[in-house]
Simulated scan of single mutants.
Amino acid sequence: MTQTIKEPKQQISPNAVKVWRISDAITYFITLCILIVLLYLQHYYDWKNWVGVILYFIVILVIISSIVEIIFVPIYRQKTWRYDVDEKYIQLKYGGVFMKTHLIIPMTKVQYVNTIQGPLLRKFGLSTIKIGTMASVHEIPAIPEKKATELREKIAYLAGVNESDE
Rank of each mutant, 00 (worst) to 15 (best):
A159S: 14
V17I: 15
K154C: 08
K9M: 10
L92H: 06
Q117H: 10
G132N: 08
Y157D: 10
I129K: 00
F29H: 04
Y76R: 11
L55V: 04
K154H: 11
Y157S: 13
K18W: 02
T2I: 15
Y89H: 09
I131R: 03
L120K: 03
Y28T: 06
E145F: 02
T128R: 12
L103Q: 13
G125F: 11
R122Q: 12
W81Y: 15
K146G: 07
I105E: 03
I131A: 04
V161C: 06
I63M: 12
V59N: 04
K147D: 13
P144Y: 01
L120I: 10
W50K: 09
V53D: 07
D46H: 14
K6C: 03
E163P: 01
R82G: 05
Q3N: 11
I54L: 15
L39H: 02
V113M: 05
H138F: 15
Q11P: 01
T115F: 02
M134E: 08
D86Q: 08
V137H: 12
S13K: 06
E150V: 12
I140V: 15
R21P: 01
E163Q: 12
W20S: 00
E145M: 07
N49G: 09
K18C: 02
L120N: 04
I5Y: 11
K154Y: 10
L92Q: 07
Y56H: 13
K100P: 02
D24K: 02
V51L: 13
P14W: 12
I105G: 01
V85M: 04
V19R: 01
L41Y: 10
